[in-house]
Protein backbone atom coordinates (compact mmCIF):
# COMPACT_ATOMS: atom_id res chain seq x y z
CA UNK A 1 0.00 0.00 0.00
CA UNK A 2 1.22 3.44 -0.97
CA UNK A 3 0.11 6.84 0.15
CA UNK A 4 -0.49 9.24 -2.71
CA UNK A 5 -0.30 12.95 -2.14
CA UNK A 6 -3.16 14.75 -3.79
CA UNK A 7 -4.17 18.37 -4.14
CA UNK A 8 -7.68 19.28 -5.03
CA UNK A 9 -10.36 21.78 -4.15
CA UNK A 10 -13.36 20.78 -2.13
CA UNK A 11 -16.23 23.26 -2.09
CA UNK A 12 -13.84 25.85 -3.40
CA UNK A 13 -11.22 25.41 -0.72
CA UNK A 14 -7.81 23.89 -1.42
CA UNK A 15 -7.18 20.51 0.16
CA UNK A 16 -3.94 18.56 0.37
CA UNK A 17 -4.07 15.01 1.57
CA UNK A 18 -2.29 11.69 1.51
CA UNK A 19 -4.58 8.88 0.46
CA UNK A 20 -4.37 5.11 0.19
CA UNK A 21 -4.52 3.54 -3.26
CA UNK A 22 -7.90 2.01 -2.67
CA UNK A 23 -9.62 4.67 -0.60
CA UNK A 24 -12.91 5.52 -2.28
CA UNK A 25 -13.74 9.14 -2.83
CA UNK A 26 -16.84 8.74 -0.67
CA UNK A 27 -14.81 7.43 2.27
CA UNK A 28 -12.16 10.11 1.74
CA UNK A 29 -14.74 12.88 1.95
CA UNK A 30 -16.56 11.32 4.87
CA UNK A 31 -13.81 10.04 7.06
CA UNK A 32 -10.66 11.86 6.06
CA UNK A 33 -12.18 15.32 5.44
CA UNK A 34 -15.11 14.78 7.85
CA UNK A 35 -17.56 15.94 5.20
CA UNK A 36 -20.18 13.44 6.27
CA UNK A 37 -23.00 15.02 4.28
CA UNK A 38 -22.13 12.71 1.40
CA UNK A 39 -23.81 9.41 2.26
CA UNK A 40 -23.17 5.83 1.33
CA UNK A 41 -26.15 3.66 0.49
CA UNK A 42 -24.95 0.73 -1.60
CA UNK A 43 -21.32 1.09 -2.64
CA UNK A 44 -22.12 -0.48 -5.97
CA UNK A 45 -23.23 2.55 -7.89
CA UNK A 46 -26.98 2.13 -7.93
CA UNK A 47 -28.56 4.14 -5.12
CA UNK A 48 -27.04 7.55 -5.84
CA UNK A 49 -26.83 8.64 -2.19
CA UNK A 50 -23.12 9.42 -2.63
CA UNK A 51 -23.60 11.67 -5.66
CA UNK A 52 -21.29 14.68 -5.70
CA UNK A 53 -19.95 16.99 -8.40
CA UNK A 54 -16.48 16.45 -9.82
CA UNK A 55 -15.40 19.32 -12.05
CA UNK A 56 -19.04 20.38 -12.09
CA UNK A 57 -20.50 17.13 -13.31
CA UNK A 58 -22.30 14.63 -11.13
CA UNK A 59 -20.57 11.41 -10.19
CA UNK A 60 -21.01 8.56 -7.77
CA UNK A 61 -18.31 9.03 -5.16
CA UNK A 62 -18.41 5.32 -4.25
CA UNK A 63 -17.26 4.53 -7.79
CA UNK A 64 -14.25 6.82 -7.77
CA UNK A 65 -11.00 6.60 -5.93
CA UNK A 66 -9.87 9.52 -3.84
CA UNK A 67 -6.54 9.48 -5.65
CA UNK A 68 -8.32 10.16 -8.93
CA UNK A 69 -9.40 13.62 -7.77
CA UNK A 70 -5.86 15.03 -7.76
CA UNK A 71 -6.11 18.43 -9.40
CA UNK A 72 -9.89 18.34 -9.67
CA UNK A 73 -12.67 20.36 -8.08
CA UNK A 74 -15.07 18.46 -5.87
CA UNK A 75 -18.34 19.89 -4.67
CA UNK A 76 -20.47 18.30 -1.97
CA UNK A 77 -23.71 19.13 -0.22
CA UNK A 78 -21.72 21.08 2.35
CA UNK A 79 -20.80 23.50 -0.42
CA UNK A 80 -24.35 24.45 -1.39
CA UNK A 81 -25.19 26.88 1.37
CA UNK A 82 -23.89 30.44 0.90
CA UNK A 83 -21.16 31.54 3.28
CA UNK A 84 -23.66 33.80 5.05
CA UNK A 85 -25.79 30.76 5.76
CA UNK A 86 -28.41 31.42 3.10
CA UNK A 87 -29.78 28.17 1.81
CA UNK A 88 -29.29 27.31 -1.84
CA UNK A 89 -32.63 27.65 -3.66
CA UNK A 90 -32.73 23.86 -3.98
CA UNK A 91 -32.23 23.42 -0.26
CA UNK A 92 -34.89 26.01 0.49
CA UNK A 93 -37.28 24.36 -1.94
CA UNK A 94 -36.75 20.93 -0.37
CA UNK A 95 -37.44 22.41 3.03
CA UNK A 96 -40.57 24.26 1.96
CA UNK A 97 -42.04 21.38 -0.06
CA UNK A 98 -41.37 18.50 2.33
CA UNK A 99 -38.84 17.16 -0.16
CA UNK A 100 -37.21 14.92 2.39
CA UNK A 101 -38.09 12.56 5.19
CA UNK A 102 -35.13 10.73 6.69
CA UNK A 103 -32.76 12.93 4.72
CA UNK A 104 -30.34 10.16 3.86
CA UNK A 105 -30.76 10.23 0.09
CA UNK A 106 -31.19 14.01 0.12
CA UNK A 107 -27.57 15.14 -0.41
CA UNK A 108 -27.33 12.90 -3.48
CA UNK A 109 -30.64 14.21 -4.78
CA UNK A 110 -29.52 17.80 -4.26
CA UNK A 111 -26.21 17.34 -6.03
CA UNK A 112 -27.88 15.56 -8.95
CA UNK A 113 -30.38 18.39 -9.24
CA UNK A 114 -27.75 21.13 -9.02
CA UNK A 115 -26.29 19.81 -12.25
CA UNK A 116 -29.68 19.12 -13.82
CA UNK A 117 -31.24 22.51 -13.13
CA UNK A 118 -28.09 24.21 -14.34
CA UNK A 119 -28.71 22.62 -17.73
CA UNK A 120 -32.51 22.62 -17.69
CA UNK A 121 -33.86 25.83 -16.21
CA UNK A 122 -37.45 25.03 -17.11
CA UNK A 123 -37.94 21.32 -16.66
CA UNK A 124 -41.19 19.40 -16.68
CA UNK A 125 -42.07 16.97 -13.90
CA UNK A 126 -41.20 14.14 -16.27
CA UNK A 127 -37.76 15.65 -16.92
CA UNK A 128 -37.13 15.85 -13.19
CA UNK A 129 -38.17 12.24 -12.72
CA UNK A 130 -35.71 11.12 -15.35
CA UNK A 131 -32.99 13.30 -13.86
CA UNK A 132 -33.35 11.74 -10.41
CA UNK A 133 -33.85 8.20 -11.70
CA UNK A 134 -30.32 7.37 -10.60
CA UNK A 135 -31.13 8.27 -7.00
CA UNK A 136 -33.18 5.89 -4.86
CA UNK A 137 -35.42 7.17 -2.11
CA UNK A 138 -37.33 4.81 0.15
CA UNK A 139 -39.25 7.41 2.18
CA UNK A 140 -40.97 9.89 -0.08
CA UNK A 141 -42.31 8.07 -3.12
CA UNK A 142 -40.42 10.83 -5.00
CA UNK A 143 -43.42 13.11 -5.54
CA UNK A 144 -42.41 15.85 -3.16
CA UNK A 145 -38.84 15.66 -4.39
CA UNK A 146 -40.13 16.33 -7.89
CA UNK A 147 -42.24 19.21 -6.60
CA UNK A 148 -39.25 20.58 -4.71
CA UNK A 149 -37.11 20.47 -7.83
CA UNK A 150 -39.75 22.27 -9.88
CA UNK A 151 -40.08 24.90 -7.17
CA UNK A 152 -36.30 25.26 -7.05
CA UNK A 153 -36.22 25.82 -10.81
CA UNK A 154 -38.69 28.65 -10.36
CA UNK A 155 -36.62 30.18 -7.57
CA UNK A 156 -33.42 29.91 -9.60
CA UNK A 157 -35.06 31.58 -12.57
CA UNK A 158 -36.27 34.40 -10.36
CA UNK A 159 -32.74 34.84 -9.03
CA UNK A 160 -31.36 35.36 -12.52
CA UNK A 161 -31.16 39.07 -13.38
Amino acid sequence: MTLHNIKLTVNGLPVEAAVDDRLTLADFLRHQLNLTGTHIGCEHGVCGACTILVDNVSARSCLMLAVQTDGLAVRTVEGLQATDGTLHPLQAAFRDNHGLQCGYCTPGMLMTLVEFLGENPQPSAADVREAISGNLCRCTGYQRIVESALDAAKRLNEQEP
Partner: peptide, 23 residues
Protein backbone atom coordinates in the same frame (compact mmCIF):
# COMPACT_ATOMS: atom_id res chain seq x y z
CA UNK B 1 -9.47 1.71 -14.75
CA UNK B 2 -11.51 3.57 -17.34
CA UNK B 3 -14.74 5.22 -16.20
CA UNK B 4 -14.91 2.73 -13.36
CA UNK B 5 -18.68 2.47 -13.39
CA UNK B 6 -18.56 -1.33 -13.54
CA UNK B 7 -15.04 -2.02 -12.32
CA UNK B 8 -15.30 0.00 -9.13
CA UNK B 9 -18.61 -1.65 -8.24
CA UNK B 10 -17.04 -5.07 -8.79
CA UNK B 11 -14.06 -4.09 -6.68
CA UNK B 12 -16.27 -2.80 -3.90
CA UNK B 13 -18.13 -6.11 -3.94
CA UNK B 14 -14.76 -7.88 -3.91
CA UNK B 15 -15.70 -9.86 -7.00
CA UNK B 16 -12.23 -8.99 -8.34
CA UNK B 17 -8.84 -8.91 -6.64
CA UNK B 18 -6.39 -7.23 -9.02
CA UNK B 19 -2.94 -6.46 -7.69
CA UNK B 20 -2.63 -3.34 -9.79
CA UNK B 21 -4.96 -0.76 -11.21
CA UNK B 22 -3.85 1.35 -14.17
CA UNK B 23 -5.90 4.51 -14.40
Amino acid sequence: LAGGQSLMAMLNLRYLHPENLVD
